[in-house]
Amino acid sequence: MAAAAAAGAGPEMVRGQVFDVGPRYTNLSYIGEGAYGMVCSAYDNVNKVRVAIKKISPFEHQTYCQRTLREIKILLRFRHENIIGINDIIRAPTIEQMKDVYIVQDLMETDLYKLLKTQHLSNDHICYFLYQILRGLKYIHSANVLHRDLKPSNLLLNTTCDLKICDFGLARVADPDHDHTGFLTEYVATRWYRAPEIMLNSKGYTKSIDIWSVGCILAEMLSNRPIFPGKHYLDQLNHILGILGSPSQEDLNCIINLKARNYLLSLPHKNKVPWNRLFPNADSKALDLLDKMLTFNPHKRIEVEQALAHPYLEQYYDPSDEPIAEAPFKFDMELDDLPKEKLKELIFEETARFQPGYRS
């Protein structure tokens, strides 16, 4: 834990890192770190609560700039109880001085990944967590956004079992017609939660990839272990087919990539493993919904509104309290091709509203 900075004593240090967030945020305490930044909790002297502050230093890398800009653009436009918001952003007053960006968010005690390492969940908890994931996802999908990296560590939890989806750095506007060349190379989302079509096709992607990830998360809540822990690309596919069985001819016809289709045709026939054999203690309604989410063919996979209306979630289902976005989200430009200098300018502009004396 960093010592509390005395008023006016300059930035606090946390594990050798400068955290320049005073005077409003003090009493910093280390939480963890990701690929390009550290997260601390801090005391907000204005709202009198502890908050989470993520320090991001992305400006050396085009990919990190892209992810940072995506996350900020999306989260500043989203407003939903099951999606983490941005409360404040701290950065230098000029673009030349801006080396880091500090993002202030609600402090959540833990995440689903940490929880599943230590606790076996009751059916009631599984049901409530799944409902909140789908409630947040309904809003995301209504904005025409794909999260693309749903996994237990991106689901934040607090002691009252509130759940918030975080990390929109890989999110995209849904565009089933656009052929994202190089899709697989830039697709760094965790393999275990990846839909089979991501490994088999490169053309376009749809909201059904997020539903697949939610199915993987439900299976993990039922058993405290990942359902498809593939060691590499082909191993991942083999794990999936080992449980779902061989795809039907109709399902194979959806695979545009001939090499991928021929690979699947070359494999020995596998039978589907019954879900109640894998999860003998699970609620039968939970397994019915799991089956509809972990469907090989993305066109037959359940959609988020149908999933919310499934009998497993009937005690929570309330369409009048499951809000959607006001308007579909649009990125003005494809960020993939922009140089990091341009992305830095866009991050600077996007964060201006939090600067003292800002006038829109």
Rank of each mutant, 00 (worst) to 15 (best):
K164P: 01
L170E: 04
Y43W: 14
A189Y: 06
G204A: 06
Y358H: 12
R91I: 11
V46N: 06
N45G: 13
Y25R: 12
R261Y: 07
K55E: 14
C254G: 05
M199E: 04
K300C: 13
L121H: 05
V145P: 11
I211E: 05
L130I: 03
T160C: 10
N257K: 14
K114H: 07
K54S: 05
C216E: 09
P356T: 13
G357P: 04
Q66E: 13
L107Y: 06
S246I: 13
L289V: 01
N281Y: 15
H120W: 03
I209M: 04
A52Y: 03
S360M: 11
K207L: 10
L237Q: 14
I103G: 02
I227D: 01
H299W: 06
N257S: 12
V21T: 13
F19S: 14
D149H: 03
G10K: 10
V173Q: 11
T118L: 13
Y317I: 07
A35P: 06
Q355R: 02
D175Q: 07
N123V: 02
I56Q: 15
P58V: 15
I72V: 03
N82G: 06
K231S: 00
M333H: 05
I74R: 12
N154L: 12
H232G: 00
S284L: 12
E345V: 14
E334H: 00
L252C: 08
T94I: 12
L218M: 15
T159E: 09
P176F: 06
N201A: 09
H141I: 07
L184I: 05
I240W: 02
S213N: 11
D318W: 01
Y233S: 11
P93M: 03
L121G: 02
N82Q: 06
I165A: 02
H120L: 15
K99H: 06
N276R: 02
Y131S: 05
W212E: 11
L115P: 03
G230S: 12
I56C: 07
P274K: 01
N201V: 10
L134I: 09
L346Y: 09
H178V: 10
L287P: 04
H310D: 01
K207D: 06
L241N: 03
H180C: 05
I347D: 05
A174C: 04
T181H: 11
A286H: 03
D149K: 04
T181E: 13
H299I: 11
P58C: 12
M221E: 05
C254P: 01
E81D: 15
Q62F: 09
G204Q: 08
L278G: 06
I255C: 11
Y233T: 10
L156K: 03
L222E: 05
L115D: 03
L121R: 00
R148T: 07
S208T: 14
C40A: 07
I198N: 14
I347R: 10
S142M: 09
L69E: 03
C65T: 10
N253M: 11
L343I: 11
L338Q: 15
P319R: 06
A219N: 06
E322S: 01
V188E: 05
S29F: 05
L130F: 00
P280C: 11
Y205V: 09
Q17M: 04
Y233Q: 01
Q119R: 04
F78Y: 15
F19H: 08
V188M: 06
I90R: 03
H141A: 07
I95E: 09
Y113S: 10
D162Q: 00
F331Y: 15
T94D: 04
L76H: 02
E314Q: 08
M38W: 10
K54R: 06
I243G: 11
S320Q: 04
N257V: 07
G230L: 02
K138W: 05
K344P: 08
D288S: 01
S57H: 07
K48W: 02
T26Q: 04
T68D: 15
P280Y: 05
V273T: 00
Y139S: 12
G242T: 06
L184N: 09
N87T: 11
G10N: 10
F59A: 14
S153E: 07
G357C: 15
H125M: 01
Q66T: 10
P268M: 01
V39N: 10
D149F: 02
G22A: 11
N257F: 12
P311D: 12
L28I: 13
T159A: 09
C166N: 07
L267S: 06
P298I: 01
I86V: 00
K138C: 10
N238E: 08
A5K: 12
R261M: 06
A352F: 00
P356Y: 05
F19E: 07
L137M: 10
K231W: 00
V14P: 14
D337C: 07
Y312F: 15
G37N: 15
Q236F: 09
I255A: 06
F354H: 08
G245K: 03
Q355P: 04
D283A: 11
R225A: 10
T68I: 15
N27W: 00
L184T: 06
G16T: 01
S266N: 12
I31T: 00
P11S: 14
F279D: 05
E60S: 09
D111L: 00
S153P: 03
L155Y: 08
A307L: 00
P323Q: 04
E250F: 08
I95K: 13
G242Y: 04
G357S: 11
L287D: 00
L69R: 13
G16M: 13
M13G: 11
T351G: 10
K270H: 10
I324D: 09
F129C: 00
S223I: 09
K138F: 02
C127E: 12
K55A: 07
A219D: 04
A327T: 08
Y233N: 15
I126W: 07
